[in-house]
């Protein structure tokens, strides 16, 4: 996709070491505007580390990150968010006691104008209306955006987390296992959301263990193994066997043994 334009977000030769563990060794990564790119790899392949580096949570030991072709150094996740790079965390980074609208706008509250402006008085009606719209756009039906998030179902909560990132992601959105622990219907809905976000021109990076899901929603698949990108596939032309092969390394180690899947 998008052959003439540079990648929206790219990593080149990124290294990250934790004590004795070389989590990333010269890892590369690319994500283009308006595509869903799945980042897959076995446990310990370095997916989380790579996402943390790309979303500003960690800084790399070496290598560079390019945002729209220009090298960037994120000062932290908030800095990355300011530049349009959002993350939906696996462990639901919501405040369960706040309602959906307050969670959507946490850290980016809308204030009342006029004399109250310096007091940072929240304009809840505006935030609630915007929240209802944001959820409607994702096809999420929340009966009442004033209910504490803790009272919602797991799927609804995940939707709030996704909506929060989607509402503010202008360029890239990382989703770490967004459908884990969801039911069938909710899973389909989140994947719908992923496609809809992509259609707005945002690059969606999907981290998932679920291969059928990856093939269903991703446009491209990048495979990490032992801290390095080992393959990049167009999702349309690949199969689960091929992906698993690249993840585990069986493809390049035993190229002529078609029977051995491990």
């Amino acid at each position: 996709m998008g052959v003439p334009i540079p990648p929206l977000l790219a990593a080149k030769g990124v290294r990250k070491r934790f004590g004795h563990v070389q989590a990333l060794q010269d890892a590369d990564f690319t994500a283009y505007a308006g595509e869903v790119v799945a980042l897959i790899g076995d446990n310990g392949a370095g997916k989380s580390t790579l996402v943390n580096v790309l979303s500003g949570v960690m800084s790399p030991d070496a290598g560079e990150i390019l945002l729209e072709g220009a090298p960037v150094r994120f000062a932290g996740p908030v800095d990355a968010q300011r530049r349009g790079v959002e993350t939906v965390y696996q462990d639901l980074s919501l405040a369960p006691d706040l309602d959906a609208a307050a969670n959507l706008y946490l850290g980016r509250e809308i204030f009342r104008g006029g004399l109250l402006r310096p007091l940072h008085v929240l304009d809840r009606p505006v935030m609630r209306r915007a929240a209802v719209e944001a959820f409607a756009e994702l096809g999420v039906a929340l009966k009442d955006v004033r209910v504490p998030v803790a009272a919602l179902s797991g799927g609804q909560r995940q939707s709030v987390a996704v909506a929060r990132a989607v509402a503010f992601a202008r360029k890239v959105i990382f989703m770490d296992e967004p459908t884990a622990a969801l039911g069938v219907v909710q899973r389909a809905r989140v994947l719908d959301t992923v496609r809809r976000v992509r259609d707005r021109g945002v690059a969606v990076v999907l981290i998932s263990h679920n291969m059928p899901e990856v093939l269903a929603v991703a446009d491209r698949v990048e495979v990490l193994r032992l801290g390095r990108r080992v393959a990049s596939f167009a999702a349309a032309g690949t199969s689960i066997e091929e992906l698993v092969g690249a993840m585990t390394g069986s493809l390049d180690q035993q190229p002529d043994n078609g029977e051995d899947r491990r």
Partner: peptide, 9 residues
Amino acid sequence: NPAAARRAG
């Protein structure tokens, strides 16, 4: 959720 608050900046 202090972690969420931190992530929200």
